[in-house]
Design a binder for these strands. Structure first.
Lengths: 113, 113
DNA sequence: CAGGATCCGCGATGATACTG
DNA sequence: CAGTATCATCGCGGATCCTG
């Protein structure tokens, strides 16, 4: 059973795995989604604490992309001081099995080498 | 339920999801593993055909890393011309649920936006 | 055929300063 | 507090040539 391959608007070949990688690939997104899915709603600075090593720029950039892709929700309160809460979206919840598999495999293999 | 966080030898924080990303993260590895897992054993040049757009360097590099990590097997035949066959390993097979989830999610979401 | 070695550009990422 | 803007850097990945 091979994957179905198609061609995108730029002539680049894509398969559904590449599509998934495009949405949640990279160093931070799976971890961000994991925290929001299993630790629940978080404020911006709380996210920073959950992701040691991430920079301001990366965090806001990744959050923005995830929001644009509809995988997380952003709720802004117009208070002083400002407050913004991030949470997993309905669509983001469909990633739970994938995130769980990533977590399970990592936990299982860790140290087994 | 939060992920357990530990510290690696360099002082960098890692969780099991980051561990997984370290092993199969990146642009090519999941797709390579997918083909070997579902299309079966492939020769080097067959892999190239299955991965349109990948360069020589990237393919051999990724294959080498996957082999070192024990996720794929490399079988070399000392013939002329040379022949090398790559296949998914026992350990690599444990990634099947993860690969299937990546494939399933990508297929499901594709076009749904 | 199956790769290794080398050079190099650019996008991803980081550091820092600034703002509503 | 929750970002944005700007500049610097670093290494991923591509192009090319070479080899057993």
């Amino acid at each position: 059973m091979s994957d179905s391959i198609t061609v995108d608007e730029n002539g680049k070949l894509k398969c559904s795995i590449e599509y998934t990688l495009g949405k949640i690939g990279g160093k931070w997104k799976p971890v961000i989604l994991w925290h929001l899915a299993y630790d629940g709603t978080q404020r911006y600075n709380e996210m920073r604490r959950l992701l040691p090593g991430i920079t301001h720029k990366m965090l806001s950039q990744q959050l923005k992309e995830l929001e644009v892709d509809g995988l997380i929700d952003r709720k802004q309160f117009n208070e002083v001081p400002p407050r913004v809460e991030y949470s997993i979206s309905e669509k983001g919840l469909t990633l739970k099995p994938l995130l769980e598999e990533m977590h399970r495999w990592g936990t299982e293999q860790w140290g087994g080498e």
